[in-house]
C-alpha cells in the first residue's frame, strides 16, 4: 500500500505544477507592434493549451482575445501557432511542452486583428471560388428521389471531406505566406472532394479556376499542409493529383481533334 504522505505529495504536485505561457499580444488601439506577455498557469495532465488560455482569461487577464468554440477538434476555430507549429489548441496538451515556457502566437500567414485573433476574410473569399458544392449537368427533381451512392463511391472522396476549415494548412504553407494570391491547400482539397464525388459534374468548371497561376501550379509540394492537418485530409496529395489531372486534360485538349474531346 502506498504511503499516505506520498499520495498527498502527488496531489499537491499535480496542483502546484505550473507552466509559463508566452502569449503574443497585439492591441491595435495601444500598440504599433505586437509584444509578448507571460502568464503562469497550472499544468494539469488533462489541460490543453486552450484550457491554459481559458484559465488566463477567467482568472488572470480578461483582456486576452482569442477564438474558440467546441473544445473537441470539430469547429476549427482555435487554431494557433504553438511553439511555431500550427495546432488546434484544444487538441494540444500543455504537458507536452513541459517544463515550458510554451509560446502561443496567432496563426502564421494571416493578418492579426488582435492578440491571437486573425483575419480570415481572405480564406472565406477563396473557398467559394472552387464551387465546393455538388454541381449537376441536369438537376433531378425532388420527386425522383435522392442521388444514390455506393460505399465505394463514398470512399473515393471521404478523406477529403473531413476538412474542418481550421486553416492550419494555410499557416503551415510557405507558398501562401510568400504569395497570398495562392488559392491554398484547403480550397484545393475541397475541390478534389467534389470532383471525386460520383454525384458531381463540376470538374471542368473547377479545373478552369485551378489551372490558373494562383491555382494548383503555384504549389511546390512542401508537404507541410499534410503534416499539420489535424483531420488527415492530406491536402498536398489533393494538389499533386489535381496537377496531374489538369496536365492530362491539357494534353488531351492539345492533341485530340475537337470532335474526339469529351
Amino acid at each position: 500500500m502506498a504511503d499516505a504522505d506520498e499520495i498527498a505529495d502527488k496531489i499537491t504536485d499535480e496542483i502546484t505544477d505550473e507552466i509559463t505561457m508566452r502569449v503574443a499580444r497585439y492591441r491595435p488601439d495601444k500598440d504599433r507592434d505586437p509584444g509578448w506577455q507571460e502568464y503562469t498557469v497550472p499544468q494539469r495532465e488533462e489541460w490543453t493549451v486552450l484550457d491554459g488560455l481559458n484559465h488566463v482569461k477567467n482568472e488572470v487577464d480578461t483582456t486576452l482575445a482569442y477564438r474558440w468554440s467546441c473544445r473537441m477538434g470539430i469547429c476549427g476555430s482555435c487554431g494557433m501557432n504553438v511553439d511555431g507549429e500550427p495546432k488546434l489548441t484544444c487538441a494540444t496538451f500543455l504537458s507536452d511542452y513541459a517544463p515550458g515556457p510554451v509560446t502561443v502566437e496567432p496563426l502564421a500567414n494571416f493578418p492579426v486583428i488582435r492578440d491571437l485573433v486573425v483575419d480570415i476574410s481572405d480564406f472565406m473569399e477563396k473557398l467559394p471560388r472552387v464551387s465546393p458544392w455538388i454541381i449537376r449537368d441536369e438537376e433531378q427533381s425532388v420527386d425522383d428521389g435522392e442521388y444514390l451512392q455506393t460505399p465505394e463511391e463514398l470512399d473515393a472522396y471521404k478523406q477529403f471531406s473531413m476538412c474542418i476549415n481550421c486553416m492550419l494548412c494555410y499557416a503551415a504553407c510557405p507558398v501562401y505566406g510568400l504569395e497570398p494570391e495562392f488559392i491554398g491547400p484547403a480550397a484545393i482539397a475541397l475541390a478534389e472532394r467534389y470532383d471525386l464525388d460520383s454525384r458531381d459534374h463540376g470538374a471542368r468548371q473547377r479545373l478552369d479556376v485551378l489551372i490558373e497561376e494562383e491555382g494548383v501550379y503555384g504549389c511546390t509540394f512542401v508537404g507541410e499542409c499534410t503534416r499539420v492537418c489535424p483531420k488527415h485530409v492530406d491536402p498536398a496529395a489533393a494538389i499533386q493529383r489535381y496537377k496531374l489531372k489538369a496536365a492530362q486534360e491539357s494534353v488531351k485538349m492539345f492533341l485530340l481533334p475537337r470532335a474526339l474531346r469529351r
Binding site: 478552369d208 489551372i211 496537377k243 494534353v251
Partner: peptide
C-alpha cells in the same frame, strides 16, 4: 477548357 502553358511545364 482554357489553354495554359503551366500544365505542360509541370509534365516535363
Amino acid at each position: 477548357m482554357k489553354f495554359r502553358v503551366e500544365p505542360f511545364l509541370w509534365l516535363a
